[in-house]
């Protein structure tokens, strides 16, 4: 969350003459930061892969030919074809040069374009994460809001149980339980797979259950606190209806807390996707990254790591934009500065 703090504060302020200049300055700085991230992540990743145990050519050959047919002969042919006996620094330079021209290269194992493969996997993962997030937000905030309406009430206590239970269950176990219930016993949803519309329901639900508990908790605490605040009581005193108070004062203020929290959770969610993808045979980024590391598919590892790093930057930007849209205070602060 530290990389991107300034930009949204400067956005959407055409009235202030220096706004454009400020935005340009911040964006310039951000671009430099992103370039730095790319350089550091690429080099670090490359160094780590080179230092992993095992002969890279043999690993790539195992990925290409499978365990029945990986032999010294196939490894030698891979080594010659890919120029793996070149000096390491030369290989790194090749990769960086490719990067400058936005060329991620081809997979060492499948031979397909890394950008194409990564795009497919990234899209699948994002689709799954987004579905889980929407589901978790709807369920979590609804339950949280209802619980906050009567702190200490039955629903509030049930929510506490739900939060603990949902967090205590590892996603892998939860996924298995959901498959047993909805696929094996009820037979209404597919157990695993990809490609049909209803394939996403169970993996998304598995991820959403854990998240929704957290969202419910955060929503409930924030709302309960805001309901007690002076401005809410003042709004009620001046005669605003329950709905208006809820929408204008409670929801909006809860949003500020919740959005920041969602930002952090989305990154955790991307990690959680790896386990769930493997259980449900979902061809996402986690799947691609695990295979790439196992096979020492260097361009694929580099590109996946870069995509994850840049996703952090993008996510932070989005969170800040959303916060700025909901909460006007920072913009005024910027004006003072």
């Amino acid at each position: 969350m530290t990389i991107s703090t300034a930009e949204p504060r400067t956005s959407s302020r055409p009235a202030v003459p220096s706004a454009v200049a400020t935005t340009a300055r911040v964006l310039g700085r951000r671009a430099l930061q992103a370039a730095g991230v790319v350089l550091v992540v690429s080099t670090a990743c490359f160094a780590i892969v080179q230092n992993l145990p095992g002969d890279i050519a043999f690993r790539i050959a195992a990925g290409r030919y499978g365990y029945d047919q990986v032999t010294a002969a196939s490894a030698d042919s891979v080594r010659a074809e890919l120029g793996l006996d070149q000096p390491v620094w030369l290989q790194l330079m090749d990769w960086l040069a490719g990067l400058v021209s936005f060329d991620l290269g081809n997979s060492l194992v499948t031979g397909a374009s890394v950008a194409g493969e990564l795009g497919l996997h990234l899209a699948s993962s994002l689709q799954l994460a987004a579905a889980a997030l929407v589901l978790a937000l709807i369920v979590g905030t609804t339950v949280g809001a209802l619980a906050a309406a009567r702190p200490g009430g039955l629903l509030d206590r049930l929510t506490t149980v739900w939060v603990s239970a949902a967090r205590a269950l590892p996603p892998f176990l939860l996924g298995l339980l959901l498959i047993l219930l909805f696929s094996v016993h009820l037979g209404v949803l597919p157990a695993a797979g990809h490609g049909e519309a209803n394939n996403i329901v169970l993996p998304a639900a598995t991820l959403a259950v854990g998240l929704s508990g957290l969202f419910a908790r955060v929503t409930r605490d924030a709302m309960a606190q805001i309901r007690q605040s002076d401005y809410v009581r003042f709004a009620a005193t001046k005669g605003l209806g329950n709905w208006l108070v809820f929408l204008r004062h409670i929801c909006r203020n809860t949003g500020v807390t919740l959005i920041a929290y969602v930002g952090v959770q989305v990154l955790v969610l991307i990690e959680g996707v790896v386990v769930v993808e493997s259980l449900f045979a979902w061809p996402g980024l986690g799947h691609a990254l695990v295979h790439a590391i196992f096979w020492r598919d260097i361009p694929m590892i580099q590109a996946a790591a870069l995509a994850l790093a840049l996703m952090v930057v993008a996510m932070n930007t989005l969170v800040d934009l959303a916060t700025a849209a909901v909460d006007p205070r920072p913009r005024h602060k910027e004006a003072v500065l």
Binding site: L176, V184, A281, H287
Partner: peptide, 17 residues
Amino acid sequence: QAVGRAESRALMAESGQ
């Protein structure tokens, strides 16, 4: 459909998928 985990495959078979 390729499914990596043996337990997932077993559940797909059991559920008629």
